[in-house]
């Protein structure tokens, strides 16, 4: 393969990984923007989401990569799988907030953050104990369509990942910019007390942020399964940490920043794996994070938060 086709191939791979990281990063950024809370349970909401996706696809009679669907049945199954996974993951996020975080509202210090680590471990161990430690074969009904472009290979699953991610991110963007609740979310992120005095129900805004962030993480979990053809109880940690890095890189709290940050991390991982060595991917990713933060502490698109009065 020539250098240019290698580069193109890794760009294709990187964009797919990056789309998944971006979906996950949005959850970190939405919740941080409103609560200034790093939500570590998000790692494993993503992992649980990929299991929900696996069970949903299995409930349609799919298993492994042997059953291929095309046309309307394929579209129908995928739409249903995304809908069920996102609804269930979103609900999981809402329950986590309601049960473990709302009682801590207004308490300063690390209590809420530590709680999210605890919840993350609970989810991790529930899946480990009930499902087992071995990796599960993830049903993939996509036909093995591929196109050759300039020496690189573009697969149908990658196109699907791009389309789904674009639609979800555009939908989130429109929601945050245009809807009444989306505007209340932005107002709450900028000045929670003032938003409350306009009549905004801040609890409802927080619940919405958890629902949306967790639903996107669920979609990310489904994409993970379709991309790698497996899922396991351990997938939350690496993907979650990279997505969190993406959110910080883009400027945590900033929605477009999380999208761009996710894509960048995906590309860095793909190029680094190709041109340096796969095992060095995390070293490269986190070195770039450290460098960016040294020179731009608020991230690429972030602004340093003014202290809230």
């Amino acid at each position: 393969m020539s250098f240019s086709s290698l580069l193109l191939q890794q760009t294709i791979n990187g964009l797919s990984l990056g789309a998944m990281y971006a979906l996950l990063a949005l959850g970190f950024t939405l919740i941080y923007g409103i609560l200034e809370l790093i939500n570590f349970s998000h790692f494993n909401v993503f992992m649980v989401g990929s299991f929900i996706a696996m069970w949903t696809l299995q409930s349609f009679g799919l298993s492994g990569q042997s059953i291929i669907l095309t046309g309307l049945p394929l579209v129908g199954v995928l739409l249903a799988a995304f809908a069920v996974t996102m609804l269930a993951s979103g609900t999981l996020g809402v329950v986590i907030e309601r049960v473990s975080l709302r009682p801590l509202r207004g308490i300063t210090g690390p209590a809420a953050m530590i709680t999210t680590i605890g919840v993350s471990y609970i989810l991790f161990n529930i899946i480990l104990v009930t499902v087992g430690a071995d990796a599960k074969n993830f049903p993939n009904p996509l036909p093995p369509m591929r196109w050759h472009v300039d020496g690189a290979v573009l697969e149908l699953r990658e196109v699907l990942i791009w389309v789904v991610s674009l639609v979800l991110m555009a939908g989130l963007w429109l929601f945050v910019q245009k809807s009444r609740l989306g505007k209340a979310m932005r107002a709450t992120a900028q000045d929670p007390e003032a938003a409350r005095m306009m009549g905004v129900d801040v609890d409802r805004v927080i619940m919405t942020a958890f629902f949306l962030g967790s639903a996107l993480a669920g979609a990310g979990g489904l994409i993970f399964g379709l991309y790698y053809n497996f899922t396991s109880f351990i997938i939350g940690f690496t993907a979650g940490l990279r997505a969190f890095t993406a959110a910080v890189l883009g400027g945590i709290g900033n929605v477009p920043g999380a999208m761009v940050g996710g894509i960048l991390i995906g590309l860095i991982e793909a190029y680094g794996g190709q041109f340096i060595a796969t095992e060095w991917a995390d070293v490269i990713i986190f070195s770039i994070l450290v460098l960016v933060l040294v020179f731009r502490p608020a991230g690429l698109f972030g602004r340093l938060a003014p202290s809230k009065s």
Partner: peptide
């Protein structure tokens, strides 16, 4: 003057009529 600093003037007015 605790406006929502990164929202437009019109969006700030809209927030006043939130309910």
């Amino acid at each position: 003057r605790r406006l929502f600093p990164r929202m437009t003037v019109f969006e700030n007015l809209e927030m006043g009529a939130y309910l």
